[in-house]
Design a protein around this nucleic acid. Structure first.
Length: 427
RNA sequence: GGCGUGGUGGCCGAGUGGUUUAAGGCAGCGGUCUUGAAAACCGCCAAGGGGGAAACUCCUUCGUGAGUUCGAAUCUCACCCACGCCGCCA
């Protein structure tokens, strides 16, 4: 949620920052917010003055009755003003609702250091690892997966539809191994607390992190109970502290969770969706950090490095991209994407997204902290990073480590979890 | 799913139409005392939103919403949530 007072104080700077998101609808939306905010205060001033009068007169009525005096004249006047208060209150509620509905659709302001432009303006920050040079034509993962018996896409389609992969045998074990490996790394070496959250959440929770109201068509919805399947563990884990006031001593709160993620991916078909590249259900280990505002810039570097550590330990080459303002997600103020090299499809695949949301999610979810005991509560900052999304991690492992005989060498870090060093084609 | 009980500030908890501008306690903050601390005692101590240059001031909030009333934590209705028992069930 945007800070409406900030908009009121410095509308030019506010609009300037939002313009960088390259969404032509935002200007009009802001105009409507400013107008509704003005009307809200206008009505508020009138109704509050009336209520102050009424409260004073009510005390007078109480006093008269206590002293057994007549109050009928005062009561008649109060009745009229009561009707007016009711009418104005109704009007005010409608304006409040309108204002909130509008404000919830305005994205976060990009940080000043975020580059201008759309996706083509994304900036490569650094690169790690060497792109493997294979002595033969690399096979894409969908063929490798079938040959090695790791997953069965046609049967997944039979069960639920295209985009619902089934992992089988060593492939299923690979999924389980990745979960254990990533969770062990983040809990033991990076200090995160492991969380196993619900996979369905209510509207308030989805609104808290910014998926609702704007992106409902991207979510699977259980209409009978008005619940939504989570598109990422970020949603339940960040919302754990919704409507809470934290002690400063608790911060940073750092949590990690392994969950399935459900995404309708409405409209995304055809290109770049083959095999495991873009699916409706996938597993992911997520990192969430709830931090003091003044620490969020440094915290973004920290959480990004934790996601990078996974790729480094898996020996997968990647690059770090800073997203341009026009390509940064709705709730984020600054995002680094980690893109892993995939030899078979011959390209970089987004395998992690690390973002600071500044106070945007904290406002929506009402997560605050007291800087010092007894002080007024302030909004925290929230961050998250995938570390990592499984399907594209699996793609990179298979495609980069394939050998001429059709086998795939497993990264050393996974060998203890897999119990074997190599995956072989089925006989 | 059925019946019952309940939902009050950061936490516990009193409160059945008007001195409740929500008692009291815990936690927290400040002070007295002390070499220091503890104890004891004294004081402060909810959140959100307006108006105002400021001092300050006003409004809202007792699970949510809608009613009754001049006036609602308190009365009515609906809903949500928690707990208990019954039913069903991994």
């Amino acid at each position: 949620m945007i800070d409406i007072r900030l908009l009121r104080q410095d509308p030019t700077a506010f609009r300037g920052a939002l313009t960088r998101r390259l969404d032509p609808a935002l200007g009009g939306l802001l105009d409507r917010v400013v107008e509704a905010d003005r009307r809200r205060r206008e009505v508020l001033v009138r109704v509050e003055a009336l209520k102050a009068e009424r409260n004073q007169a009510s005390e007078e009525v109480a006093r008269l009755k206590r002293e057994k005096q007549d109050a009928t004249g005062l009561l008649a006047r109060l009745k009229a003003s009561g009707d007016e208060v009711r009418a104005l209150d109704t009007q005010l509620r409608a304006i409040d609702e309108e204002l909130e509905g509008l404000a919830l659709r305005i994205p976060n302001l990009p940080l000043s250091q975020v580059p201008d432009g759309d996706g083509t303006g994304n900036r490569e920050i650094r690169r790690w690892g060497g792109v493997p040079q294979l002595a033969f034509a690399p096979v894409p993962h969908w063929d490798l997966g079938a040959r090695l018996g790791l997953f069965d896409l046609p049967r997944g389609t039979k069960l639920a539809g295209s985009g619902f992969p089934v992992f089988t045998g060593p492939g299923a074990r690979l999924v389980r191994s990745l979960a254990a490996f990533m969770l062990d790394l983040h809990t033991r070496e990076h200090g995160y607390t492991e969380i196993a959250p619900p996979y369905v959440v209510n509207r308030a929770t989805m609104t808290g992190t910014g998926q609702l109201p704007k992106f409902q068509e991207e979510l699977y919805h259980v209409s009978e109970d008005d619940l939504f399947l989570i598109p990422t563990a970020e949603v339940p884990v960040t919302n754990l502290r919704r409507d809470e006031i934290l002690d400063a001593a608790e911060l940073p709160v750092t949590m990690t969770a392994y969950t399935p993620c459900f995404r309708r991916e409405a409209g995304a078909h055809g290109k770049d969706t083959r095999g495991l590249i873009r699916v409706h259900q996938f597993d992911k280990v997520e990192l969430v950090r709830i931090v003091k505002p003044e620490e969020s810039a440094q915290e973004l570097e920290t959480i990004t490095s934790h996601a990078e550590a996974v790729l480094q330990k898996l020996d997968l080459p990647y690059r770090v991209m800073q997203l341009a303002a026009g390509d940064t997600g709705f709730a984020a103020a600054c995002t680094y994407d980690l893109e892993v090299w995939a030899a078979g499809v011959g390209g970089w695949l987004e395998v992690s997204s690390a973002s600071t949301f500044t106070d945007f999610q904290a406002r929506r979810a009402n997560i605050r902290y007291r800087p010092v005991p007894g002080a007024k509560p302030e909004f925290v900052h929230t961050l998250n990073a995938s570390a990592l999304a499984f399907p594209r991690t699996i793609i990179a492992i298979l495609e980069n480590n394939q050998e001429a005989d059709g086998s795939v060498r497993l990264p050393e870090a996974l060998v203890p979890y897999m119990g074997v060093e190599r995956l072989h084609p089925r006989a």
